[in-house]
Design a protein around this nucleic acid. Structure first.
Lengths: 355, 355
DNA sequence: GTGAAAGCGCTAACAG
DNA sequence: CTGTTAGCGCTTTCAC
């Protein structure tokens, strides 16, 4: 039991043990080519007996394929992204691929650097919610390898896309808020350069139309950002804070509580994503569920298809849905307000008297 | 702009462009060997001009090193582990290594399979809170590559360890609970085969000594597990639920709330880890902070040292500390109980009068 | 200090 | 169907 390094078994040794050529061993092990059952059995037996395991570097060098796919995410600390990643790690494994994960920490420069480096040493690249300019994709595309972008639409040719437009769910949410009697909505904007943020902001404004006023404050995408911005919420006079994502909502709720502002009594708060923690917040967070596992599965499926030679440039959309919980309620009655709606709307929402 | 595949630039071409030999290019690029400044400049210039990037598979094959380290975690969905991983991804990158991450989903069989597969195709293996038998390490050790185990002590030679013993912090927590007047503690046990669980259970019992009775219920390590077990908490009559980790505590608090049990009014609840969400729970979670970034950094440092040839088998311990928040309070007064402590204790924990 | 040459372990034509 | 033969792109002795 000296723990010394056992020299790895090579195809050559397996070939010798099975009395066949290296090529035959390779064929059997790759599964692809046609080999007589008898030889296949012998090779498999020898390989098992010797404890053979292929050297992936050698295989890559010879074949030109790496059996590896790169993934770039803007922030690994967001449960939303690792739900996605967990699913992709799983599914890719089943297809015989490994994932190389890079975290750009919301920095465009890191994203650009990582994506090119990753793609060079892998068979394909999955970019999750990229923040960098769309033109980066053209440069990457020149490497001639499959690229899938999750969480951002765009027109770069040969790039497949998977994303979940939120406009419909956002309309549902705004309808819900309007019915509750809200008139002043505050949108807390997400990370700079986030496509999701732009889409959501636009969708909230469109949905609000002439029913609600929509203001926005630059915020970010983390709990700390939400916590920080909570200080500025009261002065806006908004009766509902619509957060870029759930993390921000967590911060806002906590920050508001610290200031003695009750949610949803004084201010309603909503999130986006429906991360697993959302329902455990107090009050349970009203949010928009973005299908994380499904998105991870669909994104990998897109990549897997490209890897098998399917035509690139497909666009797949998933759908989000409104999840009503307890962080939204009618606004507090204020001087000069018309009577609040008589009929309660929300899930748990108890009828409210008047002010 | 056709998006065709550019054939990668090789050392040979760089060598030709710089009018030197392949060997020289290799030497310059590897940094290590001694080359005249003049040639080095020429090589670097040519490499930059041609946009050269090394083929990692070829480099691995020739050198026997992969510049890759495998990491196995029991569950990627736990913020505790990805805080760890995020840190390790960062630090390893700075050292020129890539991390290959595998998620065993709490399954010992998957852990065993992944760890061997990973180690075979990388330069080292980091096992995070392994659940499998210690003897697995002996098998892995035979591959002669560095192994670092995070989150479990053990005696297998040549395996370096990093872990954070919780006994001291647990003693602080139990002291705190005893001073609050608690006498019946319920420990919700973690995942099967978890070393942390065994350590924590033992530490809670030791710390309780004759001051508190300690009961335990098999639970698990997820929010769902905690939610499920919440149903059985009231019938135990325990006044405080000490959870294996924060995730479980989240579930318990929510499950208790659903049943109209107030935390900490009726029952106190504590967690372990201090994941970023812990302070955002209502009531903010009293827990034991396990240093996640620090642990990730220390674990990578250990691996990095082994990779550079330092002696294996080191043991590094980090420390945990009690974080008092709002989920712990004196137990409710019950028939026949002595008078509850007169002075409320929470948050910053003041010494308490009598029991 | 630099170049020539020999592979690392595997796959993929190409013959047979 | 199976064996022979070349490399894949790089590092690394070994001479000079």
């Amino acid at each position: 039991m000296g723990g010394g390094s056992e020299r790895p078994v090579t195809v050559r040794e397996v070939a010798a043990a099975a009395s066949v050529s290296q090529a035959t061993v390779s064929r059997v092990l790759s599964g692809s080519a046609t080999v007589s059952p008898e030889l296949a059995r012998r090779v498999l037996g020898a390989a098992a007996a010797l404890g053979y395991a292929p050297n992936l570097s050698a295989r890559s060098l010879a074949s030109g394929r790496t059996a590896t796919v790169g993934v770039v995410v803007p922030n690994l600390a967001n449960p939303y992204f690792y739900a996605l990643i967990k699913q992709m790690i799983h599914d890719s494994e089943a297809d015989g691929y490994r994932l190389l994960i890079a975290d750009s920490d919301e920095k465009v420069s890191a994203e650009t650097a990582h994506s090119e480096g990753l793609l060079r040493q892998s068979d394909g690249l999955i970019m999750c919610s990229p923040r960098g300019p769309e033109s980066d994709l053209n440069r990457l595309r020149a490497l001639g390898k499959p690229i899938v972008v999750f969480g951002r639409d765009g027109t770069t040719p040969e790039v497949s896309r998977v994303f979940a437009p939120g406009a419909a769910a956002i309309r549902d949410l705004v309808d819900h808020l309007a019915r509750l009697g809200h008139r002043d909505l505050l949108y807390l904007r997400g990370p700079r350069h986030s496509w999701h943020d732009q889409q959501r902001f636009r969708a909230y404004r469109a949905a609000a139309a002439d029913r609600l006023t929509v203001r926005a404050l630059a915020c970010g995408g983390s709990m700390e950002d939400g916590l920080r911005l909570a200080a500025r919420v009261p002065e806006t006079g908004a009766s509902v804070v619509v957060s870029y994502n759930d993390l921000v909502a967590f911060g806002v709720v906590a920050g508001l509580a610290e200031r003695g502002v009750s949610v949803p009594g004084d201010v309603s708060v909503t999130g986006y994503d429906d991360i697993p923690f959302a329902r455990f917040l107090t009050p349970a967070l009203t949010t928009i569920a973005s299908p994380q596992e499904e998105a991870g599965a669909a994104t990998w499926r897109a990549m897997s298809g490209l890897l098998r030679g399917e035509t690139a440039g497909t666009r797949l959309t998933l759908s989000c849905r409104l999840v009503l919980r307890d962080s939204t309620a009618p606004p507090p009655a204020r001087r000069g307000d018309p009577m609040p709606p008589a009929v309660p709307v929300a899930r748990q929402a108890e009828p409210v008297g008047r002010g």
